[in-house]
Design a protein around this nucleic acid. Structure first.
Lengths: 347, 347
DNA sequence: ATGAAAGCGCTAACAG
DNA sequence: CTGTTAGCGCTTTCAT
């Protein structure tokens, strides 16, 4: 019995006096093995502390039970929760999860995926995918199942909330509350195309009532994930608020930025929702606090995670010829106190 | 050229008319390869889209460049941020990260680690480790580097903040503010022993001033990670507050529970900090919001992550005979507005 | 500087 | 039901 290295099938075989294939059979519960033999083998496994080597197994089977997860930034609670859900789901389905984080650097994305491919992951789920046709093409070429969740990616399997509809939902709500001058705030934390879709839906619904969101009402919040202040925005807001065309409501494409905005508004002595209304996106835990009470759009996290994993598995089973699966989920407006009727003084 | 499967070293060798070992050499940049040959090989790699198979490599080298991460629950922002840091750090050092989540189920912990071992990870970092001597023993037996971060684990390499000292820091602060009747609130989100250490330090410092934390002042918050309300606590608090010995300050061992507590206090019409003070632990992003402004103990996240990874690498290099490394980091009290001077009416 | 050959630990036919 | 054999894709002596 060799020492210094972990026991192998051969060791178990030797100790129990059978062949390696028999041991392999009992380990995998494959063929019917004689009860006596099985017992002997099991015993040997016990005393040796044998543990199957997944690497060797994967090598011969030419496939792993590992999926790769690429994500931008774990400090945004929306994504970290989603990550947790996916990891759990994968584990339930018998897959291990290999993570790699891009830290929002767009070139890092390719490197991340390259590493995952070298590890021969069975499939890849991207959480915050920066559109990259070359990459999608490459992934297609190697025939590794690829699903993006939370963003709409024309060329891949994907699942996301209906962002346009969400934008419209918010617009409707704001209109119902009497708002006519509204601003849209983009956040660095949300992927461009996604952001654009939300704005599109928002604008269209407003346009139906003759309300227009001009260029001067498009703001950009350079937020980090820690509710940091954006000094540029502060001054921009201050000047905007002074003007006669000051918006009475803000739709922010991300809860983190929305909460940050509320904080900045506080500093400017603008009360929410008495003076201005704020609506966010994601419904992260913080937004539900009474002290925050942010009206926002909820994305069905559990479903997003579950379906993403499902897309991967389906593709894994049915192969490339299966038509692209692209799932849109319904967003849900969560009405809280940060958005209220437009104040009479500002009409 | 075989089709349907990914190109291998042999394919590259065939195409470039050299042996597999030569190809292997250029891929790894190992021996000096003749410039001409190298170019030919590189070319073949390009046209074939060859990608090394990490599994095969690991199999023969008998070691992987993968580390395992076991964590309890990604929905607690403190841990998800820490996770992000570790993943990044690992990646920088050339390691891929395999995650598995226990979802707080204590028996799941063994299963998680078992899976990681089958994948032959080079080392394991546990984020929220529920003390389990058997497991630690087992890990030791297989000689896989193991480091726990955030909890103090006597038998393993570990790095954590000095919890007792943190408790003392909070006690000191509360004493300075004039508090004499204080309560300690345990949260389900923090590991038992860690919680106990914080309480110990807290109590000791208070005892120095003749202040005692009796059993009636020990509360338990059954919190989930989403700032949920704990109805039992609500009623418990209501009755406690009515009594003449109502605490004037609460030290909660976790920010999530602390913020939840503040919310509950709001509902009971108790103002923070005018009527009661609250101090938390972790300094998650939310706590820094002006609307929350929670006085809390900060743990040096970056350092925790960096050192945890370092412990693993050191052990990997120097082997088992290296003495146990156990690092204590300094906690930092972040003073905000949730803890104030004891109100005159309650003295 | 390059090639031949022997495995790494396991599975998958195929015989017996 | 069990054993034999031939790889999976790669690294690593050891010759040449």
């Amino acid at each position: 019995l060799r020492s210094g290295t972990k026991p192998t099938l051969a060791d178990v075989a030797a100790l129990s006096g059978v062949s390696t294939s028999t041991v392999s059979n009992v380990v995998r519960g494959a063929t019917v093995v004689a009860p006596r033999t099985r017992r002997k083998v099991l015993e040997a496994i016990q005393t040796l502390g044998y543990r199957p080597n997944v690497l060797a197994r994967s090598l011969v089977k030419r496939q792993t039970n590992t999926i790769g997860l690429v994500l931008g930034d774990l400090s945004n609670p929306f994504y970290s929760e989603l990550t947790g859900i996916i990891v759990r789901e994968a584990s339930t389905l018998g897959y291990a999860t290999m993570m790699s984080s891009t830290g929002w650097q767009i070139e890092a994305q390719r490197a991340c995926i390259e590493k995952l491919l070298e590890h021969r992951v069975g499939g890849i789920i991207a959480l915050q995918f920066s559109h990259d046709p070359w990459l999608v093409q490459e992934l297609r070429a190697v025939a590794v199942p690829f699903a993006v969740v939370t963003c709409w990616e024309e060329q891949s399997d994907c699942v996301a909330v209906d962002d346009e509809r969400a934008g419209a939902l918010v617009a409707r709500h704001l209109l119902d509350l009497g708002h006519r001058r509204v601003a849209y705030v983009t956040s660095a934390l949300v992927e461009r195309a996604t952001d654009a879709a939300r704005l599109r839906g928002f604008r269209m619904e407003l346009a139906g009532q003759g309300v227009h969101v001009g260029k001067e009402s498009l703001l950009h919040w350079r937020s980090s994930a820690d509710f940091g202040n954006d000094p540029l925005m502060s001054s921009r807001l201050r000047e905007l608020v002074g003007s006669s065309r000051a918006p009475t409501a803000f739709f922010v494409s991300n809860d983190i930025a929305a909460v940050s905005l509320m904080e900045t508004l506080d500093e400017l002595d603008l009360r929410v929702p008495e003076d201005v209304s704020v609506v966010g996106f994601d419904n992260i835990a913080v937004s539900g606090l009474a002290r925050v009470s942010l009206t926002t759009v909820a994305q069905p996290r559990e479903e997003l995670g579950r379906i993403a994993m499902q897309l991967l598995v389906d593709r894994l089973m049915e192969g490339e010829d299966r038509p692209l699966q692209q799932v849109r989920l319904e967003p849900q407006l969560i009405i809280r106190r940060s958005a209220g009727p437009v104040s009479s003084s500002s009409i």
